[in-house]
Write a protein that binds this DNA or RNA. Structure first.
Lengths: 148, 148
DNA sequence: AATTTTACTTGCATAATACAAGTAATAAAA
DNA sequence: TTTTATTACTTGTATTATGCAAGTAAAATT
């Protein structure tokens, strides 16, 4: 899989990978909504098409952002997990949420006022820490199941 | 201009506007490379197509992220400037750069090691402050010219 | 053994992006 | 004043990304 970068700028290079409709959304779903399986993703509020999900999961794996594995005694469902590289996107997603909270309610009045928004507003660093810690805890649980 | 949001999630809503190939790149070009005119943008390293640039500038203006004005005694060139809402994207772009610096060099070995990268690595908050201050100073200069 | 579930694949349609040439208004030069 | 150059697009067409809906194969469940 060959990615063409537009130039040598680090900011643009991130967007050459992440600047599409679904890459960061999928990472957010894994990080904050604990989606782990193909079925989980297809049942998200955002409603991604299955052919697109297939493609994006492959790309995320190819970039080392997620891993794909299976539970013992279950050869059907794939389990998708964030790598350290994927977890390192937490600050990007957090900043997108802050910007949206402050600047997008005019355009999308349905944006919620719950789900940790108060902590996000009060202490962005703590919000980031909590999100990552919660994900790591669930990751550890899943890894224990995978490894027996 | 009608934007369809996928759901009520703040993180996803930001990406409903910014999650494409060019929106954040254009903001980055204004913020960090002082691009202000249509011509400036077409001459950037990223090489955007002029029909796309037209469309994206209109969208950014419609969302209140940039403004479009002209210099006195110059009815030809448009001057595009970031609004507060646009400047508020600085942390998003900064986080993209940090992620890229730490995690994308494998995939894009051409990513530079200059242009403030040392400060970005050492002190992200200071880097953000400096970038915003530099933009505000140039903005003030341009506004003085516009207003006589 | 039959049925259900999960993870895709496929064919086709729509939307976003890109290329290259052209146009109109404005500024600059002759 | 006329001609030329510059700037900001527009247009026609092609390619790529995304989406819809139906279908398929493997694995699990009944």
């Amino acid at each position: 899989m060959e990615t063409k970068f537009r130039c040598n700028c680090p900011f643009t290079s991130a967007l050459d990978i992440l600047g599409d409709k679904w890459m960061l959304v999928i990472v957010k779903q894994m990080l904050m909504e604990n989606k782990q399986t193909f079925k989980d993703f297809t049942e998200s509020d955002e409603g991604i098409a299955t052919n697109i999900l297939t493609t994006k999961l492959k790309q995320l794996e190819a970039f080392g952002i997620i891993t794909k594995t299976k539970l013992p005694n279950n050869n059907k469902s794939n389990i998708y997990l964030l790598t350290e590289k994927g977890l390192a996107m937490t600050p990007i997603i957090v900043e997108l949420g802050i910007w949206s909270d402050n600047h997008l309610r005019d355009f999308n009045p349905t944006i919620v006022n719950e789900g940790g928004i108060e902590l996000l507003r009060r202490d962005k660093a703590e919000f980031t820490r909590v999100i990552e810690q919660q994900y790591r805890e669930k990751l550890a649980t899943t890894m224990n199941i995978i490894n027996g």
